[in-house]
Every structure is written in C-alpha cells, then in structure tokens.
C-alpha cells in the first residue's frame, strides 16, 4: 500500500527535488517536508513524505534495545 524507499536529495529547486536511488534519478515533490541537498528521504508515489534520520546505522541497535524490556 505504501511502497516507498529511501533515496538521497541531489538537487532542489523550490518545492521540486531530484532524488537519487542508487543511480535511479526521480523527480519528487518536496512541498511536504523541509529538505536540503544531501538529505536522506523517503519517497512515495513521487512525493517526499518524510526525511530520515542520518543515523540509520544505529537504527537496528536501537530497535533491539527497545524490545529488551519485553524479554
């Protein structure tokens, strides 16, 4: 329902962004977020719906910590 993958903003022109997904260049709307060139973003149906935390490397570590209290 919500096919969306992360990409990197390589160009910004007002509310129009150019996003790079491992070499796939897609024009996406940037009117719903505050972004700058270099930001990692989540794009759904040609629209940036969210910016992503740069610190993705730690995300899984954080997740495991989150569920530790449930063990």
């Amino acid at each position: 329902m919500c096919v969306a993958i992360p990409g990197t903003v390589i160009k910004l022109d007002g509310t129009k962004a150019t996003v790079d997904f491992s070499g796939n260049i897609v024009n996406a709307e940037a009117g719903l977020v505050n972004v700058k060139v270099g930001d990692k973003v989540l794009v759904h149906a040609g629209c940036i719906i969210q910016t992503m935390d740069e610190d993705m490397a730690n995300e899984m570590e954080e997740l495991y910590k989150e569920i530790e209290d449930l063990a």
């Binding site: 096919v3 993958i5 990409g7 997904f21 491992s22 070499g23 796939n24 897609v26």
Partner: peptide, 12 residues
C-alpha cells in the same frame, strides 16, 4: 545490481 534493486523498490 544496486540500480535494479532500487528501481524495483521504487515501483514495487
């Protein structure tokens, strides 16, 4: 390839 992988990801 990474390109094809992400291409597939964009379009499901």
């Amino acid at each position: 390839s990474a390109s094809v992988k992400d291409f597939c990801g964009i379009l499901g």
